[in-house]
Write a protein that binds this DNA or RNA. Sequence first.
DNA 1: CTCCAGGGATGAT
DNA 2: ATCATCCATGGA
Length: 288
Amino acid sequence: MNAGKLDIIVAPDFDLALTLDSGQTFHWEKTDAGFAGTIGARAIYVKQRDDQLFVSKGRAELCSKYFALDHPLADICASFPPDPAMQSAIAFCRGLRIIRQPHWECLATFITSSMKQVAHIRQISQTLRHRFGEPCSLCELTVYAYPTPHRIAELDERDLQACALGYRAKSLLATARLINSGEVDIDQMAALPDDELRARLCALPGVGAKVANCVMLFAYERLRAFPIDVWIERVLRQQYFPGRRRMTARQLRDFAAKHFGEHGGYAQQYLFHHARKTTPRRLSPRAS
DNA sequence: CTCCAGGGATGAT
DNA sequence: ATCATCCATGGA
C-alpha cells in the first residue's frame, strides 16, 4: 500500500492505533500496516513504527496538527486527579491523544451517533461517505471524504434514511441546511468562548449537551469539555459515588467540571476508553 | 427472543 | 429546572 514515498514525523508519546480506536473518529480503516482515511478533503495514509509516524507525502504538517502532536501529553496526564480510577485509565491509555478534527465532519458524525454503538456509527459514516462523499485516490485504494454540508443539504430525508440514520436523518439534514445557507457559520464559531460555543452548538438540530461537548472537545480543541454519555455516567456513579443514590445529572456535571480540572476532556476520554475496553459484555457489568 | 447503544426533542410535572 | 416518553436500527 505504501508504494509511494512517505514523510516521516517524530511522534513521541503517541499511539496511533489506540487514538483511532478511542471513539473520537469513525472512518479510519486498517490496511496492511497502517490506516487509510481522510482529513477534510485530503486522502491520508498513516502508519506508526515506534516513535515514528509515516504519512502520505506532503501531509506531515496536516497530520501533525490533526493528531495534536503538539499537545504536552505528559503535562496533561500529570494534571489529572490522583484517584484510583483515573490512574488505572492513565496506565491503560498511554499515547492516546485528543485529535483536532475538521468542524463539520465531527459535528455531523456525532449528530448521527445518538443511541448508537461505535460499530454502527462507523457503518453510518462509511455509507454516507461512499454514497455522497468525494472519492479520493490513495495509491490503489479509494477513500471518500465526508459529504459537505452543501451535498447533504440537497438530499432528501429518504436518502439519509436509506443510510440507516433512522430518526437522526431529520436532524442531520436540518443542520446541514442551516450551515449551507450561511445562517450558521461553524468555522467562525471557533472564536467564541466555551459557554457561548456550547450554546450555539446546542441550538443546532440533533445537538444537545453531550454531542456539543464531543464536538467542542474533538473539533474545537476545548480540552475542558466533558461529554457525559452512558459509559461515563456509569464510571462516575460506580467509581466516584459507589452505592450513593440521588446523584442528579446536574450534580455529576458539576463534580466532573471541578474534579478533573483544565484538561477534563482528556481525563474523560481516558476514562471512557478504559471502561469501554475493559468492561466485559453480556456478563457482570462491573468495571475493573 | 431481549437488552443496549458516545442522546435529543418534547410535553408534563 | 427536572422527569418520562418516544424516537429507528443493528449488534451482542
